[in-house]
Nucleic acid binder design. Structure first.
Lengths: 144, 144
DNA sequence: AATAAATACTTCACATGTTAACAAAAGGAG
DNA sequence: CTCCTTTTGTTAACATGTGAAGTATTTATT
């Protein structure tokens, strides 16, 4: 009983890819105006929401791998949007925090970001939107 | 009534990112054994499912941008997994097809790929799995 | 305390994502 | 037919994704 592979519209990986592009496209355009990438935006948001923290935790929260994060933190530091200091408790670690300039970037783009999310929510309807998030989170809690 | 941004678990972009990683992680591992990337695999699958076609259509089906596809086709051609010939109707175009070696790659990894998909489906349950695909497709049909 | 194992990044190498610029060919308007 | 526009694919430049190797530091073992 060998089944065929699903068509692309019924292929979960591709459907996820397209959905992500649909959701992030408008946000990327908005961020391009302030010369910030989508990943840099995620890092700033994590720092602004959860406060100063070390790179490993940032990587977990922002869904980035450490090698990528290393480069991103370098760029953000050059731009003056974050600051770093060594962790006195553990000299392997650093403590990263967002600067005033970084908070301004967030503040200036927050409302547009929220509107983009609301637009998606309105398109699907609140119940289906929540259901989508529930299903994705359930998928993400799979062990493996 | 200004709302806060959602936590990462309720952030659609991040939930999509994590879901994609969860789904593709095992497949990436499998493909690494035959020295093929996830994107190269998508291109081969499109060609095997839909037959010979031009790069613009491949890019659409495999959810890749043309500049990425250009490089991927070069790699696949070097590996002997695809072949190209100019389109006699329109000299701007090419016709790309999968080779025997390319079909063998697909054949050798098809069953493991299907098993990975079935595993996800079993975890969510068939109804919820289909619902997830429906919601993603509905999202992808948003205009803009 | 000496050594092995684990942790927290960093660096490297290669592949892709993304935007912009570009060359070649096809289509359309006059 | 000529000029302009569109389409198709490539190249370039920079940023990130990803796995592997490397460095410094801490923790666990003996």
């Amino acid at each position: 009983m060998t089944r065929d592979l699903p068509l692309t519209s019924r292929s979960l990986p591709i459907a996820l890819l397209r959905a992500r592009e649909k959701v992030m496209g408008p946000i990327r355009l908005m961020l391009a105006d302030v010369d910030i990438t989508e990943q840099q935006w995620r890092v700033l948001r994590v720092l602004q929401e959860e406060g100063p923290q070390d790179p490993t935790r940032i990587a977990d929260r922002a869904c980035l791998l450490l090698p990528s994060l290393t480069r991103i933190l370098q760029k953000l530091e050059e731009k003056g949007l974050i600051a770093r200091r060594p962790d006195p408790e553990d000299r392997r670690k650093q403590v990263v925090r967002i600067t005033k300039a970084g908070e301004k970037i967030i503040h200036d783009n927050l409302s547009a970001s929220i509107r983009a999310a609301e637009r998606i929510r309105a398109h699907l309807g609140p119940e289906r939107y929540e259901m989508l998030l529930d299903l994705l989170n359930e998928l993400n809690e799979m062990d493996s």
